[in-house]
Each structure stands twice: as structure tokens, then as C-alpha cells.
Computed example of a mutant assay.
Amino acid sequence: MFWIPLLLTAWAGALLSCARLLAAASGDAEPAPGGAPAHRYDGLGLYEAAYLAGGPRRVAELAMLSLEARRSLLLSRTGWATVLDPAGRDPLERCVLAACGPDGQAPVEAVRSAVAGGGAVRALAERLGTAGLALPGGARAGVAAGVGAVRGAGALILVLAAASLAVPGATSPALILCGFALPLVLTLGCLGIARFESHPYSSWASPAGQRLLTALDRERGRDEPLVAVAVRGIRAVADPELRAALSCGDRATLPRQGRY
């Protein structure tokens, strides 16, 4: 009966980790601070959708693509952004143009990082958080930690089951496997539910925000390129040149003169 304490340990790990994830996920669904109704937004703007689906960096990418669509910003596949028209229509576009510096040219990654950490994105995040559509940073970290704990518990269950089977003269292997299968099913089921219910798009949106994202994607995602980018990211960019420009990271090369 040496395997019984190992089985109890497996159950303890499964129950504690699932309870931790449940507590974190329950915190996601709490109403907005001050009792603000989570349904106060009848719809989402593009920047709001971008933040909820991909966070600050997605907002910066959408602002750059919006400027590029108006030919106010040139995004080179070499990873550089060049200002063509210094007039921005909103605070986020003005942040992009300012991030390009006095020379009007900067690496795309530098621009993206500057805009993502700027005041305009923080103000957007605060508005969405107050509306109950975005998760606070602590809630995102809590859910991520809970998911990691459940995954760790699943791995522990497998290790303990293998150790129980390796004991000479142990009980019937079928009985041991059945015993450890129950906590393993619990952890896998908890992970599956968390993935399906909590964050079908990302860890930035609350359940109310997720519903609005789903509606926006269903109604406009196929017909409007910028909506598709806001919801799905740069993989939805149809132009391979633009995808290359936004995917260069921080290792941009100097653009060749006269390419455009």
C-alpha cells in the first residue's frame, strides 16, 4: 500500500491548484470598481478592441497601420518607420509620430515600445478597466499563475503514478492507474474549462470584454482589415511587406534609398 500516500499527495496537488485557478478566474468576473456596469460600452472602437485582444503592443501596431493606410507613415520591410505627414488625428497617432523622433524615422520596434508604454495607452487601459472590460494586471498574473500551478500538478500526478508503478510487489497496476486517473482528469478538465471560458482571445479582456470582441469579430472582422488586425494581430495583415515590417523586432536594418 505504499502507493496510497502518493495518491493522496496527487489529490492534494490537484485540488489545491484547481482551487487557486478557480479563485483567480472568479476575480476576473468581479464588477468594475465603484460599481461601474460592465455593459456600458455598446460597442468597441478599434483601439479598444486592439487593447482587449492583444494589449498595449497591439494598440501601437494598429495606430501605425492606421497611419500607413493614410500614407502618413511608411513602414519598410527592413523594420523602419518613416513619417510622411506629421499630422495625427488622435492621441495614439500623435504618439506614433512623436516616437519617430525629430528626424521622422525610427525602428518599428522602438516606436511600438514607446507607444505601448505611453500615456495614451495607459489612459485607454484605465477607461476599459473602469468599464469592466479589461482585466487589471494583478488578475492577469493570478490567472497565469493558476494555470501554471494546475499544469504543474498534472505533471506531478504523472510522476507519482510512475513511481507507484515502479514499486516492487505493488498492487495491481490497473488499480493504481485508475486511482491516479481521477486527479489527472480533474486537472486536465480544469485547464480545458479555463481555456474555453476565460480567455478565448487573450488574457487582457474580462468576460464582458470577450463578448464584445466576439461580436465585433463576427460582424466586421471579415470585411474590415483594421478590425481583423485589432482582433487577431499582425498575422491578419494581408500585405506581406507590412507583416515583415511589423515582425522585424529590434534588429532593423537601414532602409535602402530609393526603394519606394
Rank of each mutant, 00 (worst) to 15 (best):
F2C: 07
P5Q: 07
L6H: 11
A10I: 02
W11R: 14
A12P: 04
G13C: 09
G13Q: 12
A14V: 03
L15F: 10
L16P: 01
R20I: 04
L22I: 05
A23L: 11
A24H: 04
A25N: 02
P33I: 03
G34R: 02
G35N: 06
H39E: 11
Y41E: 09
G45A: 07
Y47D: 05
A50S: 05
G55I: 12
R57Q: 12
A60M: 00
A60S: 14
E61N: 10
L62N: 01
M64F: 06
L65E: 08
L65A: 12
L67E: 08
L67T: 07
L67N: 11
L67K: 06
L67V: 09
S72V: 02
L73H: 02
R77W: 09
R77M: 07
T78K: 14
G79F: 08
A81M: 10
G88V: 02
P91S: 11
P91T: 09
L92I: 12
R94S: 13
V96R: 00
L97R: 08
A98E: 13
P102F: 03
Q105S: 14
Q105H: 10
A110C: 03
V111I: 07
S113C: 11
V115Q: 00
G119A: 15
A120E: 13
L124H: 07
R127F: 01
G129E: 15
G132S: 04
A134M: 01
G137W: 06
G138Q: 13
A141E: 15
A141Q: 15
A141H: 10
V143C: 06
G146C: 11
G146V: 05
V147T: 15
G148A: 15
G148R: 15
V150N: 01
R151S: 07
A155D: 13
I157Y: 01
V159M: 09
A162T: 11
A163L: 14
P168C: 03
A170R: 13
L175K: 14
G179K: 00
A181T: 10
L182P: 03
L191Y: 10
L191N: 03
Y201D: 06
W204I: 01
S206D: 03
L212H: 05
L212N: 01
L213I: 14
L216P: 01
E219S: 15
E219W: 14
E219C: 11
E219L: 14
R220H: 15
R220A: 15
E224R: 15
P225V: 04
P225W: 09
P225F: 02
L226M: 13
V231E: 04
D239K: 06
D239L: 04
L242P: 00
L246G: 01
S247D: 12
G249T: 11
D250L: 09
R251Y: 10
A252C: 13
T253I: 13
T253F: 07
Y260T: 10
